[in-house]
């Protein structure tokens, strides 16, 4: 009888290797299987938790699939109108400079309807963090073309593939904001493998530190997927992302003054 180890005996604090981050609520995520949004949520939650920022944080959520981010993170949040998150964040951070402020935005939100808000907040060097989830599509509304949709890529509003002659070229917002003097740290990451998850987490943690030091706008793009609207299985989607998105949106830092200075030494 003593030989049988009950489940209760296994679940002991000393055996614990993984747990739900306290900053995540009990709410079930509504994302499709394989979607990158949930992973980035968790990274954010972990950092807020580990850095002890829960009581300091105001998050601005977008209009897009991640519209309910405020259900999942146990932090104070504001839901912006489509594309306007950086405007809200500007005011919030200026009124409460000691707080940690971030926006979380999709590519339609940040790079189409909110282009102006994004560029001007970055250009003013507003001291908050922008997390930009680039899945190359309008996820929430059912797979329409986004400004980031790749050339030739099919969507419900580019049913014959994106024709750059009439629909324009994909907009590399991250490259654009990197040229603005107001941005301090600009990087492009992904969350499709554990190694990449760790890198993204490191990038976001860095952005948190820079915000504390009043360095200006930090911009973290996460090249992500949308299995549902790409009409692929999660595994296919990640493979497609590696083969098609990464060559166009290469991962890595676009701007990090501190890294440069150490490298130059």
């Amino acid at each position: 009888m003593a030989e049988v180890t009950g489940i209760k005996e296994i679940i002991k604090p000393e055996n614990l290797v993984y747990k739900r981050t306290s900053v995540m609520t009990d709410e079930t995520l509504h994302y499709c299987p394989g979607c990158g949004h949930g992973t980035v949520h968790r990274i954010l939650a972990e950092i807020i938790d580990e850095e002890g920022l829960q009581s300091e944080t105001i998050g601005i959520t977008p209009v897009g699939c991640s519209v309910f981010l405020y259900h999942y993170l146990d932090i104070d949040s504001q839901e912006a109108a489509h594309g306007r998150a950086p405007a809200l964040a500007t005011a919030i951070k200026r009124l409460m400079p000691e707080k940690f402020v971030f926006t979380y935005q999709g590519d339609g939100d940040l790079a189409a309807i909110g282009t102006s808000e994004t560029i001007h907040a970055c250009n003013r060097g507003e001291n908050f963090l922008i997390i930009f989830i680039n899945n190359g599509i309008y996820g929430m509304t059912g797979g329409q073309m986004a400004p980031t949709t790749l050339p030739g890529m099919k969507s419900s509003t580019s049913p014959f593939g994106r024709d750059v002659k009439t629909m324009g070229n994909p907009l590399k917002m991250t490259d654009i904001v990197a040229t603005l003097p107001g941005t301090y740290y600009v990087t492009r990451q992904s969350v499709h493998t554990p190694a990449n998850v760790r890198k993204t987490k490191k990038a976001i943690r860095k952005a948190v530190q820079y915000q504390k030091l009043n360095k200006g706008t930090c911009f973290v793009e996460v090249v992500s997927n949308c299995p549902s609207n790409w009409k692929m299985t999660p595994v296919q989607a990640n493979k497609w992302m590696e083969e098609n998105m990464f060559p166009f949106y290469p991962l890595g830092d676009l701007k990090d003054p501190e890294k440069q200075s150490t490298e130059q030494k």
Partner: peptide
């Protein structure tokens, strides 16, 4: 959204010359 989607699929530029454009906002 079906209005824009339908027009993009129908591609009337080829038939009537009608311009259809997805704007940024």
């Amino acid at each position: 959204s079906e209005i824009l989607e339908y027009l993009m699929g129908a591609n009337p530029m080829e038939t009537t010359g009608m311009v259809v454009l997805q704007a940024e906002s």
